[in-house]
Design a binder for these strands. Structure first.
Lengths: 196, 196
DNA sequence: GGGAAAACTGAATATCTATTCATTAGGTTA
DNA sequence: TAACCTAATGAATAGATATTCAGTTTTCCC
């Protein structure tokens, strides 16, 4: 079997898993269900993944690669710190907002055990945090951000806000666009709530 | 059996469940394990709770009652909006920081089961958000917070930051005090990152 | 102290599901 | 076409565990 056909089947299994896990949760989804939706036999799953958990991990890896890749590009491209921060906020909310099933998995399912979080997601998240922190540092260097702000703490604050926005959107069934909240969120993050 | 003794045994079961679930996760914890740690038989659990999930729900209810109760008191007591907000930040981080096991359950375990607990947990969270939003509104009325800030959105931002601080602390094994981060977090939230 | 009721016990049950592997199908080369 | 190799199948397995309930112990009150 050609490697592209093989990769395509792997993708199909991952897509099926995203759909099922988003709807029924990781523990509420059986390997059989994923297999049926992907149009393969149960055993086939184990030709492409080590076990059930590996499927979840692979969903995370695939999504995170895109996430960090695009954020990296924003940071590498020129521009002021404030502009970059606004772009990252928009990117984060848009990527989640584009695929609700994936968003559910990110905001809900990945939290389920310290195990999964600890092992991989946190190291990737740390990369992401470091990326944001670098933008904050740039802002401090440029003199547009408060010099007394701790860059990493500020990055965590920013990530926390984006994360909560994601969870809130996932759990409220409303048909709002998550990406449309980017501007007011950026305003709050950049301006703070206190009158200057 | 007297109702106080009965309540005490219920508490003991809940305490045991907090400890086990924090260490092994909800799905990694068996009813037998909880029973053993609480010093009762498996069947006894079912005299006090409808089923395993009900134990988790009860952990949430018990903790949230204390959480909202204390926050409510802060809001009811007099004082300026900024002072109240600082107190809420301190309260949130301190309560989590005092009991790491409970913090793990709040920051990690409840996320997975949000699926199941959606109705319950989100309605309580909404109460908490409304409470913070009222403080923001007070700040706007007093003229110390930006008038264009949406109170509920700001509340979500604030909650998101506190939540991420909690998760970050839970997942980093370091021996820092979570409560000690209250001031810098409040500063960032109140002042924002941009130079005024 | 005795008898009824309430509380408790823990082994048995009933069910569920991740994973394996003997077998079949499909494709490639000589 | 035949021989060979890779991929896929899905029924069987093995292990786990939430919940029940018939029997036992404790508590309560007269």
């Amino acid at each position: 079997m050609s490697s592209t056909r093989k990769a395509a089947k792997r993708e199909r299994i991952l897509d099926a898993a995203v759909l099922e896990i988003a709807r029924h949760g990781y523990y509420g989804t059986t390997v059989s269900t994923i297999a049926r939706r992907a149009g393969v036999a149960d055993g086939t799953i184990y030709l492409y993944f080590k076990n059930k958990e590996d499927v979840l991990v692979s969903i995370f890896e695939r999504a995170m690669q895109r996430f960090i890749g695009e954020a990296q590009r924003i940071v590498d491209d020129g521009g002021g710190a404030e502009e970059k921060l606004r772009k990252i906020v928009t990117l984060h909310l848009s990527l989640l907002g584009e695929n609700r099933d994936l968003a559910v998995i990110f905001q809900v399912e990945f939290r389920h055990t310290v195990h999964v979080l600890e092992l991989l997601s946190r190291s990737r998240i740390r990369d992401y945090l470091a990326l944001i922190a670098r933008v904050v540092q740039q802002g401090k260097d440029e003199g547009v951000f408060r010099p007394e702000a701790d860059a990493l703490l500020a990055a965590k604050v920013i990530f926390g806000v984006l994360d909560e926005m994601g969870t809130d959107w996932v759990l409220s069934r409303k048909n709002t666009r998550l990406g449309s909240r980017a501007d007011p969120v950026s305003d709050l993050l950049l301006g703070g709530v206190r009158v200057p």
